[in-house]
Design a protein around this nucleic acid. Structure first.
Lengths: 325, 325
DNA sequence: ATGAAAGCGCTAACAA
DNA sequence: TTGTTAGCGCTTTCAT
């Protein structure tokens, strides 16, 4: 037997499909209690299930927001997703997640197109650095989109994130306040987030009349961290700001292997503050981002509700930063 | 201006919508090169984008598979998703991910319904323990579904996973081969995966004429691990098998805090083998699962292609297990 | 190679 | 309160 439709229900209950549609769609007041009961009963008997595709077509819109993510942010994506899902639910929207691989541009592009073709209410892009083509595609669609955990330096493009410049500034100042003067920054790339953090770091150093070290670039990964420890040591720093928890973890692993004691020989300040910080030995002191808030605010924003541009960060003291006196 | 449709293209190019549809759908041989060029040009000018919702409605099916995940498997989900995405792509299927929260039954149920209503090609459920209602729902739909990283002990329900009994057996035997006789098992629950692992552990102990300890149950999380260390110590064990990398990490943190040396005082054998194992100090020896394979095989299976039921595991030696001599 | 027309499953006027 | 009807944007016979 084929999947039952409202037509089948209508036939079996002797009413028109319009009436069935009304009952199933809860158009209160437009049907009698008697027909309602009858229709619901028959629908259940038949194992009826609404065809959302047909509904979306006629309504010309979905009550679904699309979230595009990539592999990189493994650690924090759960919190972002939680925030998004929760808030979307409150606002009566479903969420479908589209996976863009490991910063794979083809997949990323494909994901955007998929979202566009499905007439979603809005598109959220988590930790995605779009290329020009993607951005044009997005702008030309009539669908609102919002970047999550990424800020373009302009309010022309909707986005919700931590204030990366401020975040890095605070991290640097925190280290300086504890007596560090030679501080490295490791693991960031040259895109928006990376260059904002670089600016914050450099500004803080300058404000304290300290020389900024050459930024050690990387892709926010564990491997990048491992690879960069030597460079940090070579810079003669007593402290390093890691671009992410994963970079911090990599730095730490390499430090263990090379006999560099943390924090006695080298202090590490991580950025993100996910559970990774608790797992390592020593636990990692971090600039902690509020990913849940970032997620839920971005839903507000993409749906046109009042929302914050920046979500506040805070330092979480653990055991990877030493006081130099 | 409203979103352009094939009707607009047809009007502007002086052909019928049928022809436009043929060109856009690549129905080779059913149109002349000349019209093709013209239509493509106009489509581009208009910024035309196909309405997949309409296509799905008329074709009555989606070329999309739905993947339902929950928050728990944060660490390994990326690999599973990679495997799924990759294989689905090869088979011409898109993937949409539906998030079921943290083992949130309402959300889980909702996710299944969403998938069902969108006439997807197949449904994949990653590390989801369904309740009776969910299972009935799934069975009554005509949509193929497959559990990922979960095995029911029967081939009646499609599933791809590691052989959990065998995995736990090997973990136990590995420890026994290194001289351990008092071994704990910590962090599993009583559902399918948990009880299969428990059986493997108990069988291995019995086969070696060793007494199995009472299983220390938990929910596979970092917190569970932290909480269970004391119990492991109380059991007087020299080794513990952790239900997951996160449990192992929790055990390790608590061990550090309580002055229990790993592996000198206590050996830890983890299950999963994700990057978490490399991050901790000492690095965690693990039973490593091939999550990528689990993902890609599950796509094969749900699409009716030949596929494995079980994907092989292997032990990855790191630094958390001591040899007792 | 192209067009006319039917219809996918549903909602939303408009009538009655 | 209910039925009739006209689509939503597209694909697919069936003609031509």
């Amino acid at each position: 037997m084929t999947k039952p439709t409202i037509k089948d229900i209508a036939a079996k209950s002797g009413v028109s499909i319009a009436t069935v549609s009304r009952v199933l769609g809860n158009k209160t007041g437009s049907y009698s209690e008697k027909t309602r009961t009858k229709i619901l009963k028959i629908a259940k008997e038949l194992g009826y299930r609404k065809n959302s595709v047909a509904v979306d077509l006629v309504k010309k819109h979905s009550d679904v927001i699309a979230l595009i993510i990539n592999a990189t942010p493994t650690n924090f994506s759960t919190q972002i997703i939680d925030g998004i899902q929760q808030r979307a639910d409150e606002l009566g929207q479903g969420v479908i997640i589209l996976y863009a691989g490991n910063r794979d541009h083809a997949l990323q592009h494909q994901a955007i197109i998929t979202a566009l073709e499905r007439s979603v209410t809005g598109i959220l892009l988590a930790a995605i650095e779009p290329d020009e083509e993607d951005l044009t595609l997005l702008k030309e669609s009539r669908i609102p989109f919002c970047f999550v955990s990424l800020y373009f330096g302009t309010t022309a493009i909707l986005a919700v994130s931590s204030d990366n410049r401020e975040l890095a500034y605070q991290a640097t100042q925190y280290l300086i306040d504890r007596g560090h003067t030679r501080i490295s920054l490791a693991g960031i790339d040259g895109y928006h987030t990376g260059s904002q953090r670089q600016a914050g770091y450099q500004d803080a150093m300058a404000a304290n009349r300290l020389p900024a070290a050459t930024v050690l670039s990387g892709n926010y990964s564990y491997e990048a961290g491992k690879k960069l420890l030597q460079a940090v040591v070579d810079q003669g720093s007593t402290a390093v700001i890691a671009a992410s928890d994963m970079v911090a973890a990599g730095l730490l692993t390499a430090a263990h292997q090379q006999g560099v004691r943390v924090p006695a020989d080298l202090s590490i300040m991580s950025i993100d503050g996910t559970i990774i910080c608790q797992i390592t030995t020593p636990a990692l002191t971090s600039m902690t981002q509020d990913f849940y808030q970032i997620g839920s605010q971005s839903v507000n924003k993409v749906l046109g509700q009042p929302a914050a541009d920046f979500v506040s960060v805070s330092v979480t003291e653990r055991d990877s930063v030493a006081r130099l006196d």
